[in-house]
Amino acid sequence: MASYHEELILLGKWASPFSNRVDLALKLKGVPYKYSEEDLANKSADLLRYNPVHKKVPVLVHNGNPLPESLIIVEYIDETWKNNPLLPRDPYERALARFWSKTLDDKILPAIWNACWSDENGREKAVEEALEALKILQEALKDKKFFGGESIGLVDIAANFIGYWVAILQEIAGLELLTIEKFPKLYKWSQEFINHPVIKEGLPPRDELFAFFQASAKK
């Protein structure tokens, strides 16, 4: 099994929540891998070869076989390494987890991103849409500790942007989106998530991430 694991490479970007999803999934599974940091302004030959369609990170290369798209990679990891399952065994619950993960990428993350980066003209509408998106997500959480129940699962990993990045971006933008007053259950989940020992170790340093996005905001 050692050689099986040694041939695992993650092409990523340290500040990307999408790269971080794969990083977290591998850490939760305890799977060793090599990490290759990509400069997205000067994409490597490996990235262009392994992901010629989108030319984006993350890409997981397993035994020479490349796989792009973070949610697809996380599911692949879950199917390849069976310990610490990230998806429920029940077919309906599995389908729901996939639905919410896709909803995060298609609807919830874009709404929050737009709110944090919108100009003054469109900000009010963008903030309204972001708050509505967070409300939808909180309702999906219900009264559970994690979206995966008592343990972290696919939806929690897919929501890493909500759990960690949002607090940084809303501070830079001067917004109050995810707060304990507005979304108590979702805020509590975010604290449980970022303080989980494996997750805490796998998240990028807050001060560096803050500086990175603050610099981007000034451009």
Rank of each mutant, 00 (worst) to 15 (best):
L209R: 02
G202S: 15
Y187F: 15
I9K: 14
P68K: 00
I108P: 08
P110F: 07
I9F: 13
K27Q: 15
R123S: 14
K218E: 12
R98I: 10
E38A: 09
A130Q: 03
A173E: 03
A173C: 09
N20G: 12
E69S: 13
H196E: 08
G64H: 03
G122E: 07
R21T: 01
Y164K: 02
A45Y: 05
H62Q: 09
L154T: 01
K145Q: 13
K34G: 05
S19D: 13
Y92E: 02
L40H: 09
P32M: 06
G174Q: 08
K13M: 14
E75A: 06
I9H: 14
L109K: 07
A158P: 10
L178M: 08
P52T: 08
A130Y: 00
F213Q: 04
P184A: 04
S101V: 11
G30W: 10
I108F: 01
W113F: 11
K27D: 15
R94Q: 04
V155N: 02
E192L: 15
K142H: 09
E124S: 14
E124C: 09
H196N: 14
L87H: 06
I73C: 11
W117C: 11
K142R: 15
G149A: 06
V53F: 00
G148H: 08
E7Q: 13
N114F: 12
E128H: 12
R94H: 10
A97M: 05
N83E: 14
L11E: 04
A25Y: 08
G64A: 03
K43I: 00
K182G: 03
Y50G: 03
K102Q: 14
W189L: 03
S3D: 10
K56R: 11
V166C: 15
I108K: 07
K218Y: 04
H5F: 13
A97D: 01
S16I: 04
Y187R: 07
K219H: 02
S16W: 03
K144R: 15
F146D: 05
D207W: 00
L178W: 04
N121Q: 13
P110N: 11
N65C: 10
L186E: 03
K142W: 11
N84G: 00
N160R: 05
G148K: 11
A15K: 06
Y76R: 13
N83A: 11
I168S: 06
L96Q: 15
K102M: 09
N42M: 08
F18H: 12
A25M: 10
W189K: 01
V31A: 10
Y4C: 09
M1Y: 11
G30V: 07
A133V: 09
E79M: 06
S19V: 10
K185W: 10
I162D: 00
E79A: 08
E69F: 05
A217D: 12
W14D: 06
E93S: 14
S3Y: 01
P58D: 05
D106M: 09
Y35G: 09
N195H: 15
S70G: 12
K82I: 12
S70H: 06
P184E: 05
P58L: 01
P184Y: 03
I199M: 08
L48W: 02
V198P: 03
I112G: 01
E129M: 05
E150Y: 07
D46K: 04
P204F: 11
V57H: 00
